[in-house]
Simulated assay, not measured.
Amino acid sequence: MKHTARLTATIAAALLVSAATSSAGAQKLVPVKLQLKWFPQAQFAGFFVAQAKGYFKAEGLDVTLLPIGDQSPIQTVATGAADFGTTWITDLLTARQQGIPVVHIAQLFQKSGYTLVALKSSGLKAPADFKGKRVGVWPSGNEYPAVALLKKYGLTTSLDSTVSNPSVQAVTYPFDPSIVFPDKVDLVSAMTYNEVDQIVGLGYPLDKLQVFHASDYGINLLEDLMFTSQRVLDDKNFRGSGMTGRQIAAKLVRASLKGWNYAVANQKEAVTDVLVQCGNTCKGSGSRASASGHQTWQMTEVAKLYQAGPTLKGMAGYLDPAVYRANVTLLKSLGILKADPAAGAVDYGVWEAATGKKAMK
């Protein structure tokens, strides 16, 4: 009886120690806020997978994924409302030009998913045919890929106030192609992973559409990347964790890349993780209004953007210096950038610490 009592007491004590240890371990998780560039959807599948699989927690991080809609994540990160964010290269570099100290730390999508979509019945075959047409573009800096493509073919737009007789009429619309296509514009901006499928859902099958991929015409302005502020990178004791902001950044990138690699390799499972997060924003349009259908399309397409360039060489998350320089050159030619960004706009050290690989600058 005494032996049993002692054994029971020992087990109870061990359970208390275990509970205390687990509690202490939970308390050691460092809270991190990651600002996404849109509403929850498969565009961010790797992050949702990293969360669902516990990859963030394995790195000691308690990550909150913040949606933002059609606003720029730059401001929330710059003001400290979020610690890290995802955005497009043009957003980041124009912010740097304005004196906002945001820093690129990992490149997720290695190929642009931006397109302009027209009906095949329009007779448009190439960008040179866009003269005299109406082009639907997005606001807040998201119009730059269209502007770059048009300029390459000697076309001017009504977005340029210095041009009195623009060859293309730009129609700004708030991201929903059904608002303008095809009655109010001849071509409409569409991401391969989102609006193209929405347009199909509106009753225009792919075989009836002419899709102009900007990257096919040398306009490969990089999109989804991870960034933070210089303030976070310079933090010697991030949120009292005893770790620097740079160490936290490396942990976040490492877990995120693990999530992305898993998501791309296990797309059906990844879509399930996304559906838990995205609610009504999961749905497409019209006949494609199924949440699972639209997110499955989206996952398939974002996987193509991730599985390109450096990723195919085992360097996921790496910003190819040659592609970066080409992006800078293009943005300067458009007058969007006035000069080369400072070296601090990109920090390869975080990616190196996250992956254990060496950047080839």
Rank of each mutant, 00 (worst) to 15 (best):
N266R: 09
L337Y: 06
G279A: 14
T157M: 10
V346D: 00
G286L: 12
V232Y: 04
E59H: 03
S121Y: 08
P139F: 14
Y144H: 11
H104K: 01
D186W: 13
D207C: 11
H3N: 14
G54T: 12
G141K: 01
R254M: 05
Q267Y: 11
V276Q: 07
V328K: 05
P177W: 04
F109C: 01
V102W: 00
T86N: 02
Q277C: 08
S189W: 05
D234F: 14
D347H: 11
N220Q: 08
A13R: 13
A42M: 07
A170P: 04
G356H: 14
D216H: 11
W260T: 04
K2C: 08
T311L: 09
P127L: 13
G203D: 10
G286E: 10
T10S: 13
I179H: 03
T244F: 04
Y217S: 09
V117R: 07
V168N: 00
S140G: 09
T8Y: 05
A52Y: 08
P182V: 11
H104D: 00
P127C: 13
A24N: 12
G69C: 03
G279I: 12
V168R: 02
L312H: 07
D62Q: 14
Q35L: 05
A52D: 10
I336A: 04
V264L: 05
N327K: 12
A45L: 06
T4L: 13
Y318G: 06
Q298R: 13
Y144W: 14
L29M: 09
L61I: 13
Q298E: 13
G284H: 10
S23Q: 14
V32P: 01
L15H: 08
T355D: 06
F47H: 01
V147A: 01
G141I: 00
P40R: 00
A322C: 09
V103M: 06
V200E: 03
K57H: 08
S189C: 14
A146R: 06
T10V: 15
C278F: 09
W297R: 03
